[in-house]
Design a protein around this nucleic acid. Structure first.
Lengths: 227, 227
DNA sequence: GCCAAGGTTGGACCGCCGGTCCAATTGTGT
DNA sequence: ACACAATTGGACCGGCGGTCCAACCTTGGC
């Protein structure tokens, strides 16, 4: 009654085979162009000009699709990560690679920090851990340092991605930082505070991120053997 | 036609007034008991035994509701945060307070790292920034150090919250860490690696988090005036 | 004491989502 | 030539966030 399955010509087998790779590729493309909220299974079917079942035949669910897309990006980043002789340089390069990848694909930042057990995070762990070992960190200190670095990188990534997601021109950001400066000034009305606040306002995200990595590295070398 | 507005007795004014506070309070309660996914506006109306319009009369949308709930928790944490004489101890206490809050309310971790511009994050920034100043950090270094510390705390928070969200007993976690250890061992089959991996397996999340804070603090004091 | 006005409330409704299911349609092995 | 299994597409489902408005209840002016 309600189901009027049309006997029209349907299901002409597509010439371009639908594969998991093609689906992930299309997903990445849509995430890049329309943002995190823009990727819906429906839109994806439209983009691939196919039906729902076809997609769920290749991918279990949206979560897996997101993880696969994220991994797709992270693989490229971590590929040549351990190349540098100097482990410090290698770590900085790895971190910067992730930062730049998230700059290009903000959704990766959100995804990475949301699901710590996905393969992409695992990849990062391996890269970081290996370099930290080469730095001479070992034992419990290695677990602590690695976890700290990963948390920092993923945290900064998520923050930056969220900032990039909200368009908010510069007006919102400025307002936010001004309020922050005023708040601090209230606690401690020192001239230094104003300077700090102004420093906070015109900074380069990428440099600040790298500065954080350096703070961490300095902390590691200061803490290397302790605990 | 379709609309059969029943002339039954509706809208008997509730004795317990519905206020924004009551709504946020109920939201926190539901988030705690049913998890992040459990808070739907529908479920909330049911819990408050009211209708949809009533809620949207007090709160703009779900995002605002989540931000308000998060702020509600963070306020308690940051309230007595700057009490300690020693800024280092104050920062550690603040960080631990956030960690414990997220332990008790995992959804806070997710929410904090998702929306960096919400009041709750602002509160944390103020707390951290003030203490860093007392530590003698100033100028660009303050922005760098603050941002690094915040990123780390929020990143670790999100990771921990995500870990807590997935039940995954201990089996998954163990498997994950074992694979990680094997991967490392492949790169550098050193006995040290096995030790590191085993260290990674039986650690206390809270201690590891604090160790990370200490790494950053050590890094900050080593980098205090540079750049 | 009354009554008009306006703040508050509840639920029908809308468009959309992720996911399931199955009939229709092929390419392929025999 | 033919059946069979892999693949495909779209109808369908329950549920989501959000809008809208009629009905209600409180309040303030008189």
């Amino acid at each position: 009654m309600t189901n009027m399955t049309l006997p029209t010509s349907r299901n002409t087998r597509r010439s371009d085979a639908l594969s998991r790779e093609r689906i992930v590729e299309a997903a990445v493309e849509m995430l890049d162009t329309t943002g995190e909220g823009g990727l819906t299974v429906r839109a994806l079917t439209a983009h691939l000009s196919t039906g729902r079942g076809a997609i769920y035949h290749h991918v279990a669910n949206k979560e897996e699709l997101l993880a696969a897309a994220t991994d797709d990006i992270v693989v490229r980043v971590t590929a040549g990560a351990g190349d540098d002789e100097d482990p410090v340089r290698a770590i900085r390069a790895l971190a910067l690679g992730i930062f730049d990848a998230i700059d290009a694909h903000p959704w990766v930042g959100t995804q990475l920090s949301r699901e710590p057990q996905q393969p992409a995070v695992f990849r990062i762990w391996t890269g970081v851990g290996t370099q930290l070992q080469r730095l001479g960190v070992s034992g419990p200190a290695l677990a602590d340092a690695g976890s700290a670095l990963i948390s920092y990188v993923l945290g900064a990534a998520a923050q930056y991605a969220a900032g990039a997601r909200r368009v908010t021109s510069d007006a919102d950001r400025t307002a936010y930082l001004e309020t922050l400066a005023a708040q601090w000034a209230q606690h401690d009305p020192d001239p230094i505070v104003r300077e700090a606040a102004s420093q906070l306002q015109d900074h380069d995200d990428r440099e600040q991120f790298l500065a954080g990595v350096d703070i961490f590295l300095a902390g590691v070398s200061a803490t290397k053997t302790r605990r």
